[in-house]
Design a protein around this nucleic acid. Structure first.
Length: 653
RNA sequence: GCCGGUUUAGCUCAGUGGUAGAGCAGCGGUUUUGUAAACCGCUGGUCAUCGGUUCGAAUCCGAUAACCGGCUCCA
């Protein structure tokens, strides 16, 4: 959080780490430098952020990367001058007066008032102290804290520019956000930039293209992933693995189609509530012809699609005991227009499977699992490789259970996450419990059920044995959730899976089970996708492994390399044996030298290379070279194959 | 969606108003090769798309699209 958003509390300020303090101080140094170069610059907020800091500035000059050396040179002068940061607590009137004079975030008084600072001062609640920090002639409104003097900033760099709205609000002026970073010493900064390079090499978009793992094609559409053979293997192996674990946990596989009628999503509440993040409805030809012949306007057509019948409204309002469906969205049947939606979620379909026959308490918990592909209209600027897409496949399941079973089911889900992540060598993760924001009205369902669901999540989180945080405002609209945040091998965090407790949809769909006392009772639903989507999960895995997958996931597990043409037949023989055991193998029969074949296999991240020369061929052996460890010596082929199959079956890393 | 940048051969990238280039990949030939690149030759481009300025546009201008970095959003 920065000054521009919610203000930091005093506690948060005090908790600022050394490096944050240093970076925040460096933001002031950068503002000082920019003021020197462009005295008219107006500054808004300049907080430390992960890996650096930024300062939002408004000025006529558009900063470009060519300006960075200039800014850095001016910053260096400030640093060399060893200007102390002097704090001064002032009254609100004094602060306002300085801002009016344009004296804040500036080197001297200026004709124009420091308008953003003025606005920030006005937003500071009464009673909270207002402080200024001064370095040299530069005075800035700032709650601090800062390092003692500018000479402590021994390593810094201006890194990038972006634009941002003042206070993140589109109706506010657009500012230039200038990013930089700072470290206690040059070695730390160098290490940081090296790590950045490393991350770049692992970028799943780069590796995905090089290794043929995924493709996005303009003509197919933005954010729609195509899986070429190598990527398909990766996905299929993961799916097989997860499915096996799900079966062990008593899940049942189901399949459902990619679309459903609008009515289904009106019952669930997804439509029209979330229409802006869905692909628009698909309308049948006859209906379309009808509205065209009636000269229906676009707005009218939308109304007809979004409206419901009186019977529907009555039934839903009765079930939910509310006036959820308002009178104005009711329309007579002959006006109503139905259509289909590409499914934004799998839950309504799964509920229909549950509801297709009566259930006894003895059936519960019922766990319906599907790798279900869903479609969401993400904003174009948000799309990114495999991690943010418009069509994705969730490792989804819906658990229908009694209230008493909720926390046990959440624990089961966590056990699954633990198993899969440990198999993949990703041992670090934390848990976030998302609760409702008491001041918001975006949630459906009654308060009592929310309290129950939140308590269930909190209790489950407590028994997990992993660190967790509670975050109000992070709940789904129908219930609280538990998110899994995974840390990858180079320390980045990824929000993957989620578990959501839902008391709401069972009501809306009026589902029930028969209790031991022969009464009807509502089940609780748990939505869970422990790895989120296969697309995002694969993207994370590509970066985690830098494209060099463990044996069982490797698209090409073995490549046989005959040394000369004379060994090609033998290589084919080995290939056939490997194929027969289900190993993914090819032969490099090109007329290249061995070194070239190895180099190619190595860059293509093939797990094992089997060198077959005259010596090996004559005694049914292979010279084994592993991608990781290099030459492993000559081994009898049959024996090596047996060990290989064991490693694959055990999903060894 | 908003702001800024980018878009040249399958890939990585040169090319700042005067007939489109390199390396790798691909194809053909020579070489029969032992643990990270043999040699020679050839093919390959409507310079993202559409429009404009100009005698002449990859190059200048405008629109559109995609991508990248941010912002906002994320059931």
């Amino acid at each position: 959080m920065s000054l521009s958003g919610g203000r930091k509390t005093l506690q948060e300020r005090e908790a600022m780490t050394d490096i944050e303090r240093l970076r925040h101080s460096c933001a002031h140094v950068m503002a000082t430098a920019i003021s020197r170069l462009w005295p008219e610059a107006q500054f808004a907020a300049g907080p430390p952020v992960e890996n650096g800091f930024y300062y939002d500035v408004e000025m006529l000059h558009r900063v470009t990367p060519e300006d960075f050396p200039k800014i850095e040179a001016a910053m260096q002068e400030v640093v060399t001058a060893a200007q102390p940061f002097e704090k001064e607590v002032v009254s609100r009137d004094e602060a306002l007066k300085l801002a009016e004079q344009g004296r804040l975030a500036a080197l001297s008084a200026r004709p124009a008032p420091s308008k953003f600072k003025l606005d920030i001062i006005r937003s500071i609640p009464d009673g909270e102290p207002i402080s200024l920090y001064k370095n040299g002639d530069f005075i800035d409104l700032c709650a601090g804290p800062h390092v003692a003097d500018t000479s402590l900033i021994r390593a810094f760099k201006v890194t990038s520019i972006a634009s941002a709205y003042y206070k993140g609000d589109e109706s506010n002026p657009q500012l230039q956000r200038i990013y930089g970073t700072a470290f206690h010493d040059a070695a730390a900064m160098e290490a940081y930039f090296l790590a950045l390079e490393e991350a770049k090499k692992r970028d799943h978009r780069k590796l995905g293209k090089e290794l043929g793992l995924f493709v996005v094609d303009d003509e197919v559409g933005q954010g729609l992933i195509l899986w070429p053979p190598a990527g398909a293997i990766l996905r299929q192996e993961l799916q097989n693995f997860i499915s096996t674990e799900l079966r062990k946990q008593g899940y049942q596989q189901v399949f459902t189609p990619h679309i459903g009628k609008l009515a289904l999503y009106k019952t669930s509440g997804h439509f029209p509530f979330y229409k802006d993040s869905q692909f628009p409805p698909i309308i049948e030809k006859e209906s379309l012809d009808k509205v065209v012949s009636e000269n229906c306007s676009c707005a009218e057509m939308t109304n007809r699609l979004e409206a419901v019948s009186a019977r529907f409204a009555g039934a839903l309002n009765e079930r939910t005991g509310s006036n959820m469906i308002e009178q104005e969205s009711v329309m007579s049947d002959d006006k109503l227009l139905d259509g289909y939606l590409l499914k934004p979620m799998n839950c309504p379909h799964h509920i229909k499977i549950y509801a297709s026959r009566p259930h006894s308490y003895r059936d519960l918990p019922m766990r319906l699992a599907e790798f279900g592909t869903v479609y969401r209209w993400e904003q174009s600027g948000e799309l990114n490789g495999m991690t943010r897409v418009r069509g994705f496949t969730q490792d989804d399941a819906h658990i229908f259970c009694t209230e008493e079973q909720v926390s046990g089911e959440i624990l089961g889900c966590l056990a699954l996450v633990k198993k899969v992540l440990s198999t993949l060598g990703m041992e670090e993760y934390r848990v976030r419990v998302g609760l409702r924001d008491p001041d918001s009205t975006k949630y459906t369902g009654d308060a009592a059920n929310w309290d129950k669901a939140e308590a269930a999540c909190r209790d489950a989180a407590k028994t997990l044995g992993v660190p967790f945080t509670e975050e109000p405002g992070e709940a789904a609209f129908y219930g609280p959730k538990i998110d899994f945040v995974v840390r990858d091998v180079i320390g980045r965090e990824w929000q993957l899976g989620t578990v959501q407790v839902d008391y709401n949809l069972p009501v809306r769909f009026d589902i029930s089970y028969v209790t031991a006392e022969n009464t009807r009772r509502r089940p609780v639903m748990i939505h869970r996708a422990p790895f989120g989507s296969l697309e995002r999960f694969c993207g994370v895995l590509i970066e985690h492994f830098a494209g060099a997958f463990p044996l069982w996931l490797c698209p090409e597990q073995v490549r046989v390399l005959p040394v000369t043409d004379a060994q090609v037949d033998k290589a084919r023989e080995y290939e056939a044996s490997l194929l027969d055991r289900g190993v993914r193998v090819t032969v490099d029969a090109s007329r290249e030298k061995l070194g070239a074949k190895i180099r190619l296999a190595q860059t293509e991240k093939v797990f094992y290379m089997l060198v077959v020369g005259a010596r090996e061929a004559s005694v049914e052996s292979v010279s084994v070279r592993s991608r990781k460890r290099g030459d492993e010596g000559v081994k009898p082929f049959a024996e090596w194959l047996r060990l290989l199959c064991e490693d694959i079956a055990e999903r060894k890393n």
